[in-house]
């Protein structure tokens, strides 16, 4: 789960002397929202985001209802006038978990990834994080979700894993929610099979209860009201 395995390694950068219009065009063309700025040695200097650009340009320009005169007045606006210097970055050896926590803390959409010499190695966006989690959850593979309520004591998960292994079923993913009820955890097991009838019976026979997803759906509904 290292950043280096999930980041985009080909990074589109922009020159700090480029005009804001050029940067905007580049983003639109490449369908990206973040452009790092590097020096001649590929060391990270700054970043410019689509949000920086939007707040720098007057409303009429964004709407496309601008006159040529207005546009001429802004042509001198350069990337270096609006970029964020020394932006928050991460290392290729940071983990996806680090990145998640950092993104939550800093409320940014992407991190430039730099090595110890400050050289730009890649970029990791929220979108890349999402696809790595889709992979980990394995939800692109066909399967069935089991929701099991487990008591907070040693060896419970092992029993579940053993039972499923006995049935010869492959695991897609296992998620544990430790704060389900007092002394209870919820275990969400994604199994790569269509055939869960027998394994469900075995799990219930071991004394586990299967969660009824409808009950938490209804709980959520009543919370919203």
């Amino acid at each position: 789960m290292f950043v280096s395995n999930h980041m985009k390694k080909t990074v589109i950068t922009v020159d700090q002397d480029a005009s804001v219009f050029e940067a905007q065009q580049l983003m639109a063309e490449k369908q990206i929202r973040h452009l790092p700025i590097v020096d001649a040695e590929n060391r990270l200097l700054a970043i410019v985001t689509d949000r920086d650009i939007r707040s720098a340009l007057p409303y009429t320009l964004l709407k496309g209802s601008h006159t040529d005169e207005e546009k001429a007045g802004l042509i001198d606006l350069k990337v270096k006038n609006i970029m964020t210097l020394d932006p928050k970055s991460i290392s290729p050896m940071d983990t996806i978990q680090d990145a998640l926590l950092l993104i939550q803390q800093h409320k940014v959409g992407a991190f430039p990834v730099i090595n110890e010499k400050k050289e730009l190695m890649g970029i990791l966006s929220v979108r890349d994080l999402l696809s790595s989690f889709i992979n980990v959850l394995n939800i692109n593979e066909p399967g069935t979700l089991l929701c099991v309520l487990v008591e907070e004591k040693v060896g419970q998960l092992k029993k579940l894993v053993d039972t499923i292994t006995e049935e010869g079923i492959s695991f897609g993913s296992v998620l544990v929610n430790r704060h389900w009820e007092e002394d209870k955890r919820a275990v969400f097991i994604y199994l790569l099979t269509n055939n869960v009838v027998r394994v469900k019976k075995k799990i219930t026979a071991l004394g586990f209860s299967l969660l009824d997803p409808m009950s938490w759906y209804i709980d959520n509904l009543s919370q919203k009201e």
Binding site: I139, N140, E141, P142, G143, T144, L145, T193, N194, P213
Partner: peptide, 8 residues
């Protein structure tokens, strides 16, 4: 599909 096979 978040609960049942095949997930699509």
């Amino acid at each position: 599909p978040s609960f049942a096979y095949p997930g699509t």
